[in-house]
Structures are given as C-alpha cells and as structure tokens.
C-alpha cells in the first residue's frame, strides 16, 4: 500500500482575514484544530520585519510551533524580477534574493521554499535567468536542507515546456534540492464564481480564461510524480455535502495515491474572501481529503 499523506494548511487560505480578523496565533489555532501537522506561510506576509525578523518574533514563532504542535512545511517567496519599471534584476541580484529567502526559510525551520520566478508569457514561461540564479544556490540549499520548488500553477498544465525545463534542470544538475510543486488548481474542471474578493464577471472571464479551469487530466500527475516534492491543495468552494464545486478530488486523490506520493497536501483556499469563510472551508477540505484517502486505502475506489 502506498504511504499516507501528510496534511497541512497554508496561511494563504486566510488572506484578507489575516491581519484584520485573525492574528498569527489564531491562524495556528485554526490550522492545528483541523488535525494538520504542518503550517505553510507566505514569507513576506507572516514574518514580521521581513527579511530581518526580530528575536522577539523568532521566539514567538518557535513558541507557537511548540504550543500547537505544528511543523513548518513550505515558505512562499517571490523573486521581484521586474525590480523597477525601468530595469530587471541581474542574475547576481536574483541569486541574492533566493539566497536571502533560503536562509530565512531555514532559520524558521522550513524544509521547502517556493520561489515565484518572473514570467515572460501568458503560459507562464519563466524568464531565462531563473536557471542561473537557482543553480548558484543549489549548494546552499543542500547545506541548509531546503528543497527549492517552483509551482506548476494554472494556466500552465503538466505537459508543457515550463515543466520540461524544470525537469531538465533536475536531470542535468542531479540535484535533490530542487523539485516540482503541484498546485491542484490545474485540475479544476468547472468555472469559478469568485476569485479572491471579487465575483467574476464576463469581462474578467474573457481576459483570464483559466478561471474556467484548465482541466489537466489527473492521470498526468503520474508522469511527473517522481519530481514532485510538495502539493498545494488549491480549492475554492466546498459545499455542506462536502462536494467541491471546482476540483474533481476523487480522480485527483486516486492518481496521487497511485503515484506513491507521501508528502504534504497543504490547503490553499482561494475562494470568496468574506470574513471568516476560509476557516470552515479549510476544515471541509480536510474532512473531504481524509475521507477520500481512507476510502482509497479501503479499496472503495481505485
């Protein structure tokens, strides 16, 4: 039997609530109470004083991890490629951004770092410098025990040159400190009604067709599973019958289970940002995913 999943929650789930109706400790409480064992954060979000947190913040961070029995999973970061309107980062500056975030992730106990690279196109081709500034940091990532994992996110499907580029990089360098993060939004097969705090109108739909779902066949996960190190369990709306309105979880969980993946499923709620809505949406997702994993293990579906 394949291994079991680990369950986590990203604080991204609580955007807008966080800092207005939710403190850092509230977020820990909500996450731990789902039964999750891992917390994922937005580096320049939950880390007060980013990129140089105070010792008081660090004490608080480790105190909360201990109190709520959570382990740090992934830290999200950004490489500000278009640093100003006038110019882009050099490779040296890109390397420095990544180094800063690797060291910070390690300092806080994270094992994964998800950098967002700058992109050049609507199918999210990364700017070509990513490879050079990432390669310069592979040795450091190895020393720190952190895996760098760019995310495969809609509108980019699995069978795409963006993914091929990352896999070629892994094969060429032989590194164990770079892998793929899969955002389950790529499996979305029905249209969204809300994106963040906004109801989606026809105008937005026209410009951002991916809001209707790019419908990656879940079976494609198996083709890249050996390179996948982390999964952000993106979702938008789960009703009171535990029916997800956008993500077809049953075939998705089936494919992930059959691949043998035993890492984190880290909840990323990205639905309607009404105050407090996210908290119970995350709980519903955990109930749903745990139920599906149990049923798969019991042979109720394959």
């Amino acid at each position: 039997m394949p291994g079991s999943f680990k369950y986590g929650v990203s604080t991204y789930s609580y955007v807008d609530d966080y800092g207005s109706v939710m403190t850092l400790e509230d977020a820990f409480d909500h996450i731990a109470d789902t039964g999750a064992t891992g917390i994922e954060i937005l580096g320049e979000g939950q880390i007060e004083g980013f990129p140089n947190p105070s010792s008081q913040f660090l004490d608080r961070w480790f105190g909360l991890l201990d109190k709520y029995k959570l382990e740090p999973t992934n830290m999200c970061s950004w490489v500000d490629m278009r640093i100003t309107l006038q110019r882009n980062l050099t490779i040296e500056e890109g390397a420095a951004e990544l180094e800063r975030d690797l060291r910070l992730a390690h300092q806080l106990g994270f094992k994964f770092l998800r950098p967002k690279f700058g992109v050049l196109s609507h199918d999210l081709m990364p700017e070509p410098q990513w490879e050079a500034y990432t390669e310069r940091n592979l040795e450091l990532a190895h020393e720190l025990g952190v895996v760098i994992c760019p995310e495969i996110h809609a509108p980019t499907p699995i069978k795409h040159e963006v993914v091929d580029g990352y896999i070629n990089f892994i094969e060429r360098t032989g590194t164990k400190n770079f892998g793929l993060m899969i955002d389950t939004g790529i499996f979305q097969d029905r249209p969204l009604t809300h994106w963040g705090s906004h109801q989606i109108n026809e105008e937005a739909r026209k410009h951002m067709e991916f809001l209707n779902g790019i419908k990656v066949p879940p079976e494609h996960f198996l083709d890249v599973a050996q390179y996948v190190v982390f999964i952000q369990a993106k979702f938008h709306d789960i009703d009171e019958n535990l029916e997800d309105q956008n993500i077809p979880w049953k075939p998705v969980i089936s494919a992930i289970k059959r691949s043998g993946y035993s890492g984190y499923l880290s909840s990323e709620y990205e639905g309607w940002r009404a105050p407090w809505r996210s908290i119970d949406q995350v709980r519903r997702q955990h109930a749903l995913l745990r139920k599906l994993e149990r049923e798969f293990d019991e042979g109720k579906f394959a």
């Binding site: 320049e44 980013f50 640093i83 100003t84």
Partner: peptide, 14 residues
Amino acid sequence: RIPNYHGTRLSQLD
C-alpha cells in the same frame, strides 16, 4: 491595507 496577499517592496506598487 496593502492591495496584495503578501508584503512587497514599494517599487512593486505603481
């Protein structure tokens, strides 16, 4: 409040 889900450099605002 910041019109974003994370903090940023000021140069990232136009």
